[in-house]
Design a binder for these strands. Sequence first.
RNA 1: GUCCCCAUCGUCUAGCCCGGCCUAGGACAUCGCCCUUUCAAGGCGGUAACGCGGGUUCGAAUCCCGCUGGGGACGCCA
Length: 464
Amino acid sequence: MRFAPSPTGFLHIGGARTALFNWLYARNAKGTFILRIEDTDRTRSTDEYIDAIIEGMKWLGLDWDEGPFRQTDRFDVYRSYADKLLKEGKAYYCYCSAEELEARRKVAMAQGKSLKYDGRCRDLKEPVPGVTPAVRFRMPQQGQTVVEDLIRGNVVFENEQLDDLIILRSDGTPTYNLTVVVDDVDMRITHVIRGDDHLNNTPKQIQLYQAFGYAVPKFAHLPMILGADKTRLSKRHGATSVMAYYEMGYLPEALVNYLVRLGWSYGDQEVFTRDELIRYFSFENVGKAAAVFNPEKLLWLNSQYIMGTAPEKLAELVRPFLVKEQIITEDQPLDPAWLARAVQTLQERAKTLVELAASLRYYVAEDIIFNEKAKEKFLNEKSRDLLKELKDGVSALSEFSSPELEMLFKAIVEKHGVKLGVLAQPVRVAMTGGTESPGIYEVLEVLGKEKVLRRLEKAISLTG
RNA sequence: GUCCCCAUCGUCUAGCCCGGCCUAGGACAUCGCCCUUUCAAGGCGGUAACGCGGGUUCGAAUCCCGCUGGGGACGCCA
């Protein structure tokens, strides 16, 4: 199995899903997973993108056993394969220029005819002087080619539909259809798992395998991922780069889980561990229909994973986001146990690490940011006496913990004959600046006596 | 235009291969209720789908044909 991206962009959602299915199948079948960079288009491929793809793969936890190999390192190999075909008459030189071909395609389009190459250089005996030719594969024009697909079953193509594709450009560099076949043969790839958009290329590649006399691998063409408007997923549908999801505070496990359920299912199960995924994966459970990418469900899964992650681990993961949100500085020390405790109180209300970091602000930072509306509504003469009383009560507390605090709150509330919320909400605003937070006793406990007292003081001063 | 693929709630999907267990199940979203110091989380419940038309059959979401709709490919891109 292999994942063979072309480095003409970041690792995107579609590519990640293809990589994931290859990886899953490789791990399930205890096979070898190879990463191969298809960079034969030198004008569009860059080293930065190669690094970006590797970064994305690593973040998702898709480790490979061999590679990354680069096709640009293997040009000699491809050329020798092309020469072999040329020698055997299975390929020929084509002297048509790119411009001529483009013009002919336009005419064909206008006449409503097939856009395939008209084969005019097929039987040329003499070279055309002054033109450096490209090399075309002589595609058989009779019979049929059958793609035996693990997901779609047999797909039949009439050979007369198949184009004499260019395998070597006029500058001598090989093209995709040649390089995949040569590499897949050389690297002993047994299963080619890729997007649906390659299905039409497959019969051509099968012909190439046969021309070389090699066995054809098994194919599995995955359904596409679409945007909400049912067109191919692209930038205008929102974030498509995998690493953008890192930036937005997603856990890689959540993305993997989401992606795998796009086109694959295992009964009614929605949440899977990595081991379960590997164990359960099978092409039989891969669907045929294209799937619409639904960010809301991904967000839900992310919240599930955040809830299910150990607070200590989450505390570690959230740290870079705390820095990015400028809540702490890069080298600011934070007690890991304390941070974990703080995270624990927030875990079930944060859907992303970004949200988690933002909520952590009122625990970590010295000064809180007041929501004006909340301040007006809860920090006023009505709450002043209650807050004062609480402050005195807190100062007198010998043990500062959640149960003690609860007793204190209950006593004050009872004495004044008011509901708990009448005291709790002003305190919440005093502590966090807003009206939404974890349970108030937890918040106070995490904050610690000193901070609580300071904030009460400050809040009381704001009431009048 | 030509070729290829696909078609179950708004979305992801189960069921389809091997017709009856389907008055079509689950999940996200949405709506309502419960819990409750807020927000969540959680629990309970609701709305919501077999694209259409023909067959085959005692019986079709499931099999066959057509239509419609959607997607993809048609590069000296991958």
